[in-house]
Amino acid sequence: MAYFELENISFSYDESAEGGETKKVIDGVSLEIEKGSFVCVLGHNGSGKSTLAKILNLVLTPTSGRLVIGGKEVSGPEISEDEIFDIRRRIGMVFQNPDNQLVTTIVEEDVAFGPENLGVDPEEIRQRVDSALQTVGMSEYAKHSTHQLSGGQKQRVAIAGVLAMQPECIIFDESTAMLDPIGRRDIMSTIEYLNREREITVIHITHNMDEAVRADRIIVINDGKIYLDGTAKEVFSSVEKLRRVGLDVPQVTDLFYDLSPYLDLPSGVIDIEEGAAVLADRLKNGKA
């Protein structure tokens, strides 16, 4: 069953800005996202991908269109504040800048912030905080001050803060963009763990193609519209189409694309191991 159902969703910021002409940031997007899937959203800066993410947990209300979350329509004007907050609890969000999403100075107090807002019992908050910190591997830092942590550690605390609210889906809005390679790797493995083992639906917005490859499905957004949608293999087969909107492909795919005029190579190779195997095979058989 589809968890998110978007039907012709559009969004524009306040028209009174300048000139009176409204630019649609999201322009008639229709799509369905399955429960438990790992979806990656790609798009260059200003393509509307972050806006789309904020619509999905109702931080922004779509200007027009129909949005159904978990089988319940939430885009109507009659939706109550309590229902909106319930959606935000079920769909957590982790942002780009780790410094701008930690609310308190102590790690465990920050993780407790969400459940405290929900009015959970103090004893249960304690349990949730401990288990969330354990899940992201930050238990030993529970009493530490947040500003002494590295970027990757701060992001893991932010993830724990979302987990403590027991969400069904987590949206990562360029959460790896400001991290060093080690921080990135840690966050990616945490994301994959949450998706595989905890069956949490993951929507990961990124610029990094090597991260995108790991998703079940890739959606490319351009000018507020869906530009490409499919598995990593399908999407990265269209190298030229991606380059036209200013996006890259993984290095292996790039190499295979550049070699393809000279060698008869399969398109849409996204895995380094797979690529190496194909090339080794060619060399052995002497066809090259």
Binding site: V59, R88, N100, Q101, V103, F113, G114, N117
Partner: peptide, 13 residues
């Protein structure tokens, strides 16, 4: 601005 959005996402009211 960022912190306010993050707090809203964590159900602060």
């Amino acid at each position: 601005v960022d912190l306010a959005t993050a707090m809203e996402c964590r159900c602060y009211r």
